Structure formats: C-alpha cells, structure tokens
Lab assay of single mutants.
Amino acid sequence: KKSYVLIKVKNPKTKETHTIVVPEENLEEVLKALASQPNVKVVDIERFP
C-alpha cells in the first residue's frame, strides 16, 4: 500500500497556492526539484492516512 503526501506550494510573486499530491517514496526528489524553483515556496506538507 502506497502512502501519499500532500505538498502545498505558494508562488510569492502571484500569491497563488497549489497543492501537489506525490507518493511518499518520491517526496525527497520532488522537494529537491521544488527547492530549485526560484518562485516556489513550500508552505505545508501533510501525510495521507
């Protein structure tokens, strides 16, 4: 059974918020990819039960 993680990201320029759902096993690479985006800020990470 896969567990999923909900990542909320915000664009500081446009103030838009997006929610991305990723499998927990991919969380680290997704966070690394997001960290390299200049106008993306991770605001929240939630685990799915």
Rank of each mutant, 00 (worst) to 15 (best):
K1I: 13
K2D: 15
K2I: 14
K2E: 12
K2C: 04
K2S: 12
S3K: 11
S3Q: 12
Y4G: 02
Y4H: 04
Y4I: 03
V5S: 02
L6R: 14
L6F: 07
L6P: 00
I7H: 00
I7R: 00
I7Q: 00
K8T: 13
K8A: 03
K8G: 02
K10I: 15
K10A: 12
N11F: 05
N11Y: 07
N11W: 04
N11L: 04
N11I: 06
P12H: 15
P12A: 14
P12W: 15
P12Q: 15
P12G: 14
K13F: 14
K13P: 02
K13A: 11
K13W: 09
E16H: 06
E16S: 03
E16Y: 05
T17N: 05
T17G: 04
T17I: 12
H18W: 15
T19R: 10
I20P: 00
I20V: 05
I20A: 01
V21D: 01
V22I: 09
V22L: 03
P23N: 10
E25W: 06
E25N: 05
N26H: 09
L27W: 03
E28Q: 12
E28V: 10
E29G: 08
V30W: 12
V30T: 14
V30E: 04
L31A: 01
L31C: 03
L31G: 00
L31V: 03
K32M: 11
K32L: 11
A33D: 07
A33K: 11
A33H: 14
L34F: 06
L34V: 03
L34W: 03
L34C: 02
A35D: 06
A35M: 12
A35N: 06
A35L: 13
Q37P: 02
Q37W: 08
Q37F: 07
Q37K: 12
Q37L: 09
P38E: 10
P38H: 07
P38N: 07
P38C: 05
N39E: 09
N39I: 03
V40I: 09
V40R: 05
V40E: 03
V40K: 04
V40S: 07
K41N: 09
K41F: 11
K41E: 14
V42Q: 02
V42P: 01
V43S: 03
D44F: 13
I45Q: 02
I45G: 01
I45C: 06
E46M: 12
E46R: 12
E46C: 15
R47F: 13
R47Y: 11
R47W: 13
F48C: 14
F48Q: 06
F48A: 06
F48T: 05
P49F: 05
